[in-house]
Computed example of a mutant assay.
Amino acid sequence: MIKKIIYVVRHCKAVGQPSESPLTEEGLKQSRYLVEFFSNKNIERIISSPFLRAIESVEPLSNNKNVKIEIDERLSERILSTTDLPDWYGKLKDTFKHKHLKFEGGESSNEAANRILNVVDDVFKSKIENTLIVTHGNIMSLLLNHYNDKFGFDGWNNLSNPDVFQLILIKNEVHMERIWR
Rank of each mutant, 00 (worst) to 15 (best):
F38T: 08
F38S: 05
F38R: 09
S39I: 06
S39A: 09
S39D: 08
N40L: 07
N40M: 04
N42F: 10
I43Y: 00
R45C: 13
I46Y: 00
I46G: 00
I46V: 04
I47V: 14
S48A: 15
P50K: 13
F51K: 02
L52N: 01
L52C: 02
R53F: 02
R53N: 08
E59S: 02
E59W: 00
L61G: 02
L61K: 03
S62C: 05
S62N: 06
N63W: 11
N63C: 06
N64G: 01
N64W: 09
K65T: 09
N66D: 15
V67Y: 05
I69T: 02
E70W: 02
E70R: 05
I71W: 11
D72G: 12
D72V: 11
R74G: 05
L75S: 02
E77Q: 08
I79Y: 11
L80N: 04
L80F: 13
L80R: 11
S81R: 11
S81G: 10
S81C: 13
S81Y: 13
T82W: 02
L85F: 12
L85H: 05
P86Y: 12
D87M: 05
W88E: 14
W88Q: 11
G90T: 13
G90S: 13
G90I: 05
K91M: 15
L92W: 08
L92F: 08
K93S: 13
K93C: 10
D94N: 15
D94T: 15
D94F: 09
D94H: 11
D94M: 14
T95S: 12
F96N: 00
F96H: 01
H98I: 14
H98C: 13
H98E: 15
K99W: 14
K99Q: 14
K99E: 13
L101F: 13
L101A: 12
K102S: 07
E104W: 02
G105V: 13
G106E: 12
E107N: 03
S108G: 05
S108W: 15
S109C: 08
S109V: 03
E111P: 06
A112V: 01
A113Y: 02
R115L: 09
N118R: 10
N118P: 03
V120K: 09
V120E: 10
V120R: 10
V120Y: 05
D121A: 09
V123S: 05
K125N: 07
K127C: 06
E129P: 02
